[in-house]
Write a protein that binds this DNA or RNA. Structure first.
Length: 581
DNA sequence: GCCGTTTTCGGCCCGACTGTTTTCAGTCG
């Protein structure tokens, strides 16, 4: 069993223990062991073999043995026993916001509920509200939570969909029968969540390709198995469609199945205006039987007198017009990013040491890296007290000596307190190279108060970057109530860059806000918010958001050199007096 | 179940919020 699966199993054990009302600290021990292993560099099998597993913080006698059993045999008796005691469906119910292990256990033990429809029924007919510790309001909240889960239930994170699609594409590419292959759909357009995976193949032998496709590993169910289209449900619950076309049709099919639907409609309208009919098989001059020949997607656009439009922009938000006018932006690329900004270390809630994070940043080719641990109010994340901030400065100087190419910057992720103040006095803030300001508490404030709070923080002269501006967790938590326009305007005015948090569950700022923000004079920072070395590799997800938001390298702060990055606010913030509305 | 310059037992991150209670439990970050 590999590392991700071991981590998942440990997390599931923690949840199962909570459901069984075991010692809560025991559950937490499994949770923290899972986190440690997730962040531990190196091959898990080797760690087990060498015994170095036990050097990892949080792994002792008990869990160590269980991890070894998992790695070596792929099974774990302890885990299987736990699962036998609790209906597995109950775990799924915990996704409902406000419905935690205690409530789930109560509903299950007294009413026998282990399934979402039953839970909804009990919430509606009043049975739930009668349980001790429940009430009318709780039942109502659970109904709303169920609604939320349902409305997001059939969608998947971009990162997960990509992880599911890549091995399929790799496997099919090995077939001789496959001439060209590419992922299309919302995945190719880099939407933040994905409903299903679309793969387009050109081949002279569709039957061979389709037969191989439906026989691939990791498929739970074959929904359809035809010559031009097959459809399967993968083990993770994601649907995957495969389309086979001839090599001549491929560019048209790829464009068609990349979408978006609205983009396609607009493209067909353009084609029509030029006397052409456009569909997934080709571009047909009026009355003609056969399509124009286009060797690739570029040629399809050229036939409509357009430059190639990057898939990320194909949302019918003016990209065709911009293309026609020669005004498409030169979209930012991952390689443009020079600074790996916003990561956590073992000082707060990260699982890797500063030096390890720096080493990985250097290996990935970054010129500088900005550490950003949590501030003192974030007690749950072991936020840094003022003296720890000062000590971290010394630590950075020490570690810096070990690096020639990489420059380390000292930042902090300061909580925005309830009234909009930052989490340290000026004497501490002024020692830092930059300050990310973020909201981690009091999410439920009324819109007006939240907006005021946010703007007050933005106007703090030490604020550099507004962290995960909407606070959303994709498929889990909605953004907080906020007058985003007012916030963007304030950020533009105060020269506070907007973070594009690249964590796959955040992707926050939303791409839809980027263009608006840019028009208001805002700049951006694409940050991994990494809590371990592997998290640094999330940066490209953030680049995807920036590209969808029409951003270029000039818009992004951490495309600057380290010196320019540090000086950006100080130098350019000076001139005019701040005008207040 | 883990951990240890308060070390082999007794702590374990902790405070806010919400809704349920009539002083607190559950959830969340």
């Amino acid at each position: 069993m590999d590392k991700p699966e071991v981590v998942r199993t440990l997390r599931e054990i923690a949840t199962l223990l909570e459901l069984q009302e075991e010692n809560p600290f025991k559950a937490r021990a499994y949770e923290s062991a899972a986190r440690s292993i997730e962040g531990a560099p190196g091959d898990l099998e080797a760690l087990v073999a060498s015994g170095d597993l036990y050097k990892i913080k949080g792994i002792g006698e008990g869990i160590g043995k269980k991890v070894a059993e998992l790695v070596q045999t792929g099974r774990l008796g302890y885990y299987e026993d736990l699962r036998a005691n609790v209906p597995i469906e109950l775990l799924g119910l915990l996704r409902i916001p406000g419905f935690g292990p205690k409530k789930a256990r109560a509903a299950w033990q007294t009413l026998g509920i282990d399934e979402i429809d039953e839970l909804e029924q009990a919430a509606r007919d009043g049975r739930l509200a009668k349980l001790p510790g429940f009430g009318e309001k709780t039942a109502q909240n659970i109904l709303e939570g169920i609604e939320f889960v349902r409305s997001h239930g059939d969608r998947h994170l971009y990162s997960e969909a990509w992880a599911a699609a890549a091995p399929i594409v790799d496997a099919l590419r090995e077939l001789k029968a496959v001439q060209r292959i590419k992922v299309g759909g919302s995945l190719r357009r880099r939407r933040e969540t994905i409903k299903d995976i679309d793969i387009v193949v050109s081949t002279g032998k569709p039957r061979t390709v389709m037969d191989r496709f439906v026989a691939l590993g990791g498929i739970e169910r074959v929904v359809a198995h035809g010559e031009t289209k097959s459809s399967v449900t993968l083990a993770g619950g994601i649907n995957c469609d495969l389309r086979c076309v001839s090599d001549a049709q491929y560019p048209f099919a790829l464009h068609y199945f990349t979408g978006s639907k609205d983009h396609n409609v607009a493209m067909r309208r353009r084609a029509q205006g030029m006397g052409l009919k456009m569909n997934e098989y080709g571009l047909f001059p009026d009355g003609a039987e056969s399509s124009l020949e286009c060797a690739d997607e570029q040629a399809v656009f050229a036939a409509l007198q357009l430059p190639w439009i990057p898939p990320e922009l194909r949302e019918d938000t003016g990209e065709i017009e911009a293309a026609a006018n020669g005004e498409l932006p030169a979209l930012i690329e991952t390689g443009d990013i020079r600074g790996m900004i916003h990561f956590h270390t073992t000082e707060s809630d990260g699982v890797c040491a500063l030096e390890d994070m720096a080493r990985e940043a250097e290996r990935l080719g970054y010129a500088y890296a900005g550490v950003c641990d949590h501030s003192q109010s974030a007690a749950y994340a072991r936020g840094l007290k003022p003296d720890q901030v000062l000590r971290q400065r010394e630590e950075i100087e020490k570690v810096q000596k070990k690096f020639k190419k990489l420059r380390l910057l000292h930042g902090i992720e300061s909580d925005i307190l309830a009234e909009g103040a930052l989490d340290y006095p000026e004497s501490i803030l002024k020692t830092l190279d930059f300050v990310v300001i973020s909201i981690h508490s009091r999410f439920g404030m009324p819109k007006a108060d939240m907006t005021k709070r946010m703007i007050a923080a933005i106007e703090n002269p030490y604020a550099t970057i507004l962290g995960h501006p909407t606070g959303r967790l994709l498929l889990q938590r909605d953004p907080y109530e906020l007058d985003m326009d007012a916030v963007l305007e304030a950020a533009g005015r105060a020269r506070v860059a907007l973070e594009i948090n690249a964590h796959p569950m955040r992707l926050d700022l939303d791409w839809r806000e980027c263009r608006k923000a840019k028009a208001l004079g805002c700049r951006f920072a694409i940050c991994p918010d990494a809590h371990n070395t592997e998290g640094i590799a999330d940066v490209p997800y953030g680049v995807g958001v920036a590209r969808k938001g029409w951003l270029t390298r000039e818009d992004v702060l951490n495309c600057l050199t380290a010196e320019e990055f540090v000086q950006w606010k100080r130098v350019e913030a000076k001139p005019k007096k701040r005008t207040r509305k």
